[in-house]
């Protein structure tokens, strides 16, 4: 077990090194997209933890991301907190929000939970307009500052974003992976498999569901803060309902129980607007189509995945291989 963990750690570090060299070779737009992918990887892994493992649905993760983002921005503006601390505060604030939501969620299941979190996703960002400290419709600036000079003259702002996001992604993937293979992860899977049986074997269902929600929300909060870092501002319109849907799509595309697939979902989410653009240009359509095509594609993809690759491409492939093996032997 211990050996496997250090091997994983090594893999993650190796991944980081590869990314580092890669980021030096591509243009600014790609670097920016790389940062977005890293943000989505984090957000998607929070959904995978919650939905794939603890069996709870949340359509409100966009709102939890907003909580993290606002917390980070307020800490930055009001307290002039150092950037690392801002991210920590984002995680904590969202985790607290998640714990509250989780306490409500533990009493609910399936569609009830989905609807409740959906109402939250629609309601919460608009609440920001109520408080002047949150900047209303315009929102707040969130500035992580210039990259340190020691990184050199050529080191651009976007590259700096990418670095921060990628590092955060590596750390949180590693953390999530460890949480999932820990006692808690097993407990969640037991509950998802059979709630009654889990209860009979002495698992405190409500507590472990709330814990899952709390951890997942904390991770989402980090993703939210990182997202607003790349945009530069925090505002209600940065966290629309569509964001929550996108995350769900990303998680389903990744395979709802395949943490390692988070990258697939994230890449697709970032690629979709570009694909949509290309398609719209090719068919030479109006602006109306161009602006709505990405949303259309995300949703259509969501439906198609649920219908035809319900457990995600990785699982599907694995299942097919296993079947073949059985067949041969």
């Amino acid at each position: 077990m211990h050996k496997k963990q250090s091997r994983d750690l090594l893999l993650f570090i190796l991944g980081g090194v590869v990314l580092y060299f890669l980021s030096g070779m591509v243009d600014e737009l790609r670097v920016y997209q790389g940062a977005s992918i890293a943000v989505y990887v984090i957000a998607i892994s929070s959904i995978i933890l919650l939905t794939g493992y603890s069996g709870q649905v949340s359509l409100g993760h966009g709102a939890l991301m907003a909580v993290g983002a606002y917390a980070a921005a307020v800490a930055r503006i009001e307290l002039q907190a150092p950037i690392i601390l801002c991210f920590v505060i984002a995680v904590l604030a969202a985790a607290i929000g998640g714990a509250l939501l989780g306490a409500a969620a533990a009493r609910l299941s399936g569609p009830y939970l989905a609807g409740t979190t959906l109402a939250l996703a629609i309601g919460l960002p608009s609440l920001a307009n109520q408080f002047s400290v949150l900047g209303g419709e315009q929102g707040l600036l969130f500035d992580v500052g210039f990259p340190p000079l020691s990184l050199g003259e050529e080191f651009t702002q976007y590259k700096w974003f990418f670095w921060i996001a990628a590092l955060a992604a590596l750390i949180s993937m590693w953390a999530v992976k460890n949480i999932l293979s820990s006692r808690y992860g097993r407990t969640w899977r037991a509950i998802r498999g059979n709630e009654v049986a889990a209860q009979l074997s002495g698992i405190n269902i409500a507590r472990s569901k709330i814990l899952a929600f709390t951890i997942s929300a904390g991770i989402a909060g980090l993703a939210g803060a990182l997202l607003s870092m790349t945009i530069g501002t925090v505002s209600p319109s940065a966290f629309p309902l569509a964001l929550s849907f996108s995350l769900l799509t990303g998680a389903v595309l990744s395979g709802i129980t395949t943490l390692g697939g988070a990258m697939i979902g994230a890449v697709v989410l970032v690629a979709i607007p570009e694909v949509a653009d290309a398609v719209a240009n090719r068919i030479g359509s109006s602006e109306r189509v161009t602006t709505n095509l990405p949303g259309f594609l995300v949703s259509a993809l969501l439906i198609l995945t649920v219908l035809f690759v319900p457990n995600g491409p990785v699982e599907q492939h694995r299942a097919r291989k296993a079947k073949k093996k059985n067949y041969l032997s």
Partner: peptide, 9 residues
């Protein structure tokens, strides 16, 4: 849930 949300989108 996911499918009907996708449909909404």
């Amino acid at each position: 849930i996911i499918a009907t949300l996708g449909l909404l989108g």
